[in-house]
């Protein structure tokens, strides 16, 4: 069963932070190249959510990699390599965002939470007191677009609607949803990289997903009307 080629072994090994950090400290170029190719795209997406401009995002990412190069010797392993790199990016992007007069996503967690606050679903869609049913059940069920044919759900147009809805989110919500759902980070990694609590992370994520869900519902409603 153990017929893996040697190359696959070395790639798997960099997945282990202890191995990776050791190699980076030894200035192993293969380790750094692996890191660069693995995280560059994700760094660009997060940078975009701060600065909103590809050219500036490009500079932020470049500066981040330079920070990684100069900071490797001081990396103490208190967080994962991944979250360490993203903290470097977030700090550079925040400073740059201030310079570009953009809003600062995590200037304060409480402000971020107020930002775009609101229920997941419009309250008018539920029965409430003093209506006949005071228990908050649906007035009418939401359009069951999840049963649309697979090719429709997976269509480029559907993904485009989703991307637009994410672009309209408040920055803090967009950033959490980007890391969690687009880049597949765990909640622990997101909390660590953005320095927010588990609860804040879930609230921001839920608001973001709810708004994107609503945008998709409106899109499918419009298309079926």
């Amino acid at each position: 069963m153990d017929g893996r080629p040697a190359l696959a072994d070395s790639v798997v090994a960099f997945d282990d932070d202890v191995v990776l950090v050791g190699c980076l400290r030894d200035r192993d170029e293969a380790a750094f190249t692996w890191l660069l190719d693995r995280y560059d795209g994700c760094l660009r997406r997060v940078a975009m959510s701060y600065v909103g401009n590809r050219a500036i995002a490009d500079e932020v990412v470049q500066e981040t990699w330079m920070g990684v190069v100069s900071g490797i010797a001081r990396f103490e392993g208190r967080s994962s390599v991944k979250t360490w790199i993203f903290r470097i990016l977030v700090n550079i992007a925040r400073a740059r965002g201030i310079r570009e007069h953009r809003s600062i996503p995590f200037a304060s967690a409480s402000r971020a939470l107020e930002d775009g606050a609101g229920p997941a679903i419009d309250p008018d869609r539920f029965l409430t007191a003093p209506a006949a049913d005071p228990t908050g059940h649906w007035v009418s069920f939401p359009l069951a677009w999840e049963h649309e044919p697979e090719e429709r759900l997976e269509a480029a147009e559907t993904v485009a609607v989703m991307r637009e809805a994410m672009a309209d989110l408040p920055p803090a919500q967009r950033e959490v949803m980007t890391l969690r759902d687009v880049d597949g980070w765990t909640s622990v990694e997101v909390c660590d990289a953005l320095n927010i609590s588990e609860t804040n992370q879930r609230v921001l994520l839920h608001r973001a997903r709810s708004k994107v869900r609503r945008a998709l519902e409106q899109y499918f409603e419009g298309a079926s009307a």
Binding site: C42, M162, R163, D181, V182, V212, E217
Partner: peptide, 13 residues
Amino acid sequence: QIDRLIRLAGRIT
């Protein structure tokens, strides 16, 4: 739908 959009979001990369 939320479960679905999480999977769709992975396509944005």
